[in-house]
Design a protein around this nucleic acid. Structure first.
Lengths: 211, 211
DNA sequence: TAATCACTTGCTTGTTGACAACAAGTATCT
DNA sequence: AGATACTTGTTGTCAACAAGCAAGTGATTA
């Protein structure tokens, strides 16, 4: 419990090196991709030895799983704050705005997360289940928004909440994928605006089809 | 030009071994993922030596690029046949049906292609450009369908063809991704039916909003 | 037509350097 | 002194390359 000036507690040391390792891993993944990023590179870029990354995370897959979870935590926190207590169409639109904002404010995290999720498609991926779980949760959250929107009288009763959630999550997955593949030529913001308009058109109770 | 019974011309030999290699690669990718598939495994599974895959395709990335292009060719041919000379909403719906059919009839190819495309998200991917190009072409094809549908009086004039194409391609990308991640829990067919309904609702000229 | 010879091409085996993973050690905290 | 953060030594695997072998090819000659 008694610490000198520049000496840290064990817990602080691990927290520090953990953060440094994950941060270095993120940069390296962004530059070279997960395949061509080596554990030695990660350790040394973080200012430690070539062996620390393996020691701390057990394996390359373990490290990327931790990185994935770490960014996901941050992202889910950010999303929760962005959506607030909105429900129905408002929540779905707010989520789209929040995704865009997150990728503007934290492009490194957003991009890395996308890259890792794509890598999770491989049968060998150690964090396949992590990725699946997050998508599943995303979908059930959206379905819940729709149901609450229906109860609040904002969303049409005749739409199936799960169907809508499925379409919505598919759109988000595809949109982020396309953005990841060609960030320059894909109009993220415009695409989201179109989507928001479409959500209102197809889900809102009052279909007074004007304009 | 003169060949004996069981001896093959050089061209035939390469064609044969090429096919065997790509086929073996497909099986191995499906089972272990691209990362844990080794070039030696591919060569030996195909019935040749451990070195052939490297010799023929230059590198691991080169092999997967070839595999990607090979399946893509097949898929695009299949798609063209499925869509025929339809345009507008009909073409878009037919394309959705064709995707579903392709994945029912050729699950190995479909799955492998998806896995490879996801891997292309990595900055180190050697066939990143291949994947980007195909998506881009997909999008411009769809935009063309929409424009032709507008000229034919089937699609509303006030929708932007490029915007619609963007949404459509995003949906397809996301849907195939979700299907790849959890083939069992994702209702591919149902999702497509919903999408087709939505396409008609939002694009058809006569919005007589009945039923 | 048939035999031979120079050359090309398909394929295999030998080797090297890089890397993940593990084991055994050192330094720092408690 | 014991535990914990971290480093260094080592091994087996793999991609990539290089050198070699064997089978195919086409031209020349008789």
């Amino acid at each position: 419990m008694q610490q000198e000036n520049n000496s840290l507690s064990q817990a602080e040391r691990t927290a520090l090196s953990d953060k440094a390792l994950l941060d270095a891993a993120m940069d390296l993944v962004l530059e070279h991709g997960p395949d061509k990023t080596t554990l030695a590179m990660i350790g040394e870029t973080a200012g430690y030895s070539r062996g620390l990354a393996t020691y701390r995370f057990g394996s390359k897959g373990g490290l990327f799983d931790s990185l994935c979870k770490s960014i996901s935590r941050h992202w889910l926190e950010y999303l929760k704050q962005g959506v607030g207590d909105k429900v129905g169409i408002d929540a779905m639109c707010a989520a789209l705005d929040t995704i865009y904002k997150f990728e503007q404010e934290s492009p490194r995290e957003a991009r890395t997360l996308e890259i890792l999720y794509c890598g999770a498609a491989s049968p060998s991926s150690e964090f396949r289940d992590t990725a699946i779980g997050i998508r599943r949760r995303q979908k059930s959250d959206v379905a819940e928004w729709v149901r609450q929107g229906q109860e609040a009288g904002q969303v049409r009763r005749d739409v199936d909440a799960d169907e809508v959630a499925g379409q919505y999550v598919a759109y988000i997955s595809g949109m982020t994928y396309l953005w990841l593949m060609s960030p320059d030529s894909f109009d993220f913001h415009g695409s989201n605006e179109v989507m928001k308009k479409q959500l209102r058109d197809s889900l809102a109770v009052c279909t007074a089809a004007s304009s």
